[in-house]
Structure formats: C-alpha cells, structure tokens
C-alpha cells in the first residue's frame, strides 16, 4: 500500500502533528465524520465544529477533494482550494490495489452496510435510502456515536463521495475512487478523507474514540478490505498460543481430548538415537 502524504501537505500546509493527533483521528476512515448527532453523553460534551463552512464548501464542489475525484478537475488550481482551514484539518489519502474487477470492488463499497466489515471503528451503517445512511461508531466505555451521512458525488464504477448530513458538531467528508489497474492487476482504490478539527478537551475525547494514528488506521482498514475481497477472511493471529499464555486458562480443544489420531507415522526418537543411530543415507 502506498502512502501519499503529499495531499495532506498541500491542503493543510505545515500541520502540527501532535495537535492533529489530538484531533479526531479518523480512522476508519470513512467514516468518520463523526459528525453529527452525538448521543448518550456525547451531546453534553460540547463538541465544537471548527471550519465547517469551508469544509462544506469543499464538499459542494470547490475542494481539492472534489476536484480530484469529481468531474471539474480543471476548474480550481491545486493550491487554491482547501476544504479545511490551514493548520486545522486532517487529510488522509491512501491507495491500494485489489485483485478484483472494478465493478465488484465498487459494488461492495457502495453498499455502505459493508463498511463496518473492514472499518474497525464502525459498529453499523444502515442505508436510509439510495443516498442517505445512518452510521453508528464505537466509542469508549461501550458508548456509541451516531450520525447521518449522504452521498454527494457518485459515478458508477468510478467514484463515491460522501459527507455528514446536517451535522452541528463535527464535519467529515470522504471519497473513494476506483480505477482499473493496468494489465489485469485489478482495481486501484484511492481513499481520501478530510475532517475538521475539534477544539479543546472535547477534541481529545473524540480523538480517543478514533485512535491517534489516522493514517495507519485508514491503512489497516484498506488492508482488511483487500483481504475480504481477495480471500474472504482477513488473516489474524489473535488467540494463538505462545509461551506468554497459561495453558490452564484455556479449554482443551476437542481434538486433543479425542486424541489417538494415527500415531504410526511418528518416528519414535529416544535418547539413544542421539546422534542419529542409522548413518545418513547420503545421496
């Protein structure tokens, strides 16, 4: 997976990384927009949206994001348009190649209900209608954060762009572009996330919700997407044995209890067979 930080620098200049990490890290990318309708405890947190007007402007057609991914590429120059104010926004752009046809990758993503399968911070996304969806993200202490999003840009098998809908607290825009890779190498999937910062203590609360390394999280989400589409089942090593775990804390699997698997092919070794009792059969 390639990391393209170029866009981030172009859009937000000399971002203070420490500050950004306090900000909402958008992990899952897509998602996140944390926007909107914060429930159960979050509403009282007094989250403030900074720079929303510029973000919205960007989404509606003049942002760098839109320019890159939408149709009107020639209209705005690279440096002129940003969607979040200088020093206050986060932009993550990631690209990967998935060894499946464009139509399949596009269709999978377009069904937003699939997003939680690879975006770890999402619990659920429900489609409300063809354009609108309701997002539920996992928050610390078994809470959730919920918001609505709408698709603002869509070209079949090319691009999907979305943003939070009527959010009063935090804004986010995301876009994913699909392109056939040369020579039958599958589909290049390019994800761009922008999100507005949050001020003060509220900002760090939300940052905890989404982790502290947005680049890495988008990266991992995309990797899971690739694995789901290529293999059906993202690989894990969680739960495997090691000398760090105590056997008595783990139930004995049935195959061990059933034991008595054929033993006949086991070459019985013993102390006397050290060194090898029979001379090596040299080739």
């Amino acid at each position: 997976m390639q990391h393209e930080n170029r866009q981030q620098q172009e859009s937000s200049g000399s971002i203070n990384v420490a500050r950004n990490e306090r900000l909402l890290s958008l992990a899952t990318g897509a998602a996140m927009a944390v926007g909107g309708v914060a429930k159960r405890g979050w509403a009282g947190a007094g989250l403030l949206l900074v720079g929303a007007p510029m973000l919205l402007r960007g989404i509606t057609g003049r942002s760098y994001l839109y320019k890159r991914l939408g149709k009107n590429r020639a209209v705005v120059s690279d440096t002129a348009a940003v969607s979040v104010p200088h020093g206050q926004g986060i932009r993550v752009e990631k690209v990967t190649t998935i060894n499946r046809p464009v139509s399949e990758v596009y269709a999978f993503w377009r069904n937003f209900g699939n997003l939680p399968r690879f975006m770890n911070n999402l619990e659920r996304v429900d489609m409300i209608d063809q354009r609108r969806s309701h997002w539920v993200a996992k928050a610390p202490a078994n809470q959730t954060v919920e918001w609505d999003a709408e698709i603002v840009n869509e070209i079949e098998n090319e691009v999907i762009g979305w943003r939070t809908l009527n959010s009063k607290l935090v804004e986010h825009a995301g876009s994913v572009q699909f392109k056939s890779a040369p020579g039958g190498r599958g589909t290049e999937v390019r994800v761009v996330m922008e999100y507005a910062p949050l001020g003060g203590a509220a900002g760090s609360l939300v940052a905890r919700l989404f982790g502290t390394a947005p680049e890495q999280q988008v990266d991992e989400d995309l990797r899971r997407l690739k694995q789901i589409l290529e293999t059906g089942d993202p690989i894990t090593v969680e739960g495997q044995p090691s000398g760090r775990a105590k056997p008595e804390d783990h139930p004995t699997p049935s195959y061990v209890r059933a034991e008595e698997a054929p033993k006949d092919v086991v070459q019985q070794a013993s102390e006397e067979s050290f060194p090898a009792s029979d001379p090596p059969a040299y080739y």
């Binding site: 089942d233 894990t236 969680e238 495997q240 044995p241 090691s242 000398g243 004995t252 699997p253």
Partner: peptide, 9 residues
C-alpha cells in the same frame, strides 16, 4: 502452552 485453535475459516 495452550493448544492452538481455528482462528480463520
């Protein structure tokens, strides 16, 4: 150590 279990399909 604990015995291994199926983790992926």
């Amino acid at each position: 150590v604990p015995d291994p279990t199926i983790l992926n399909d």
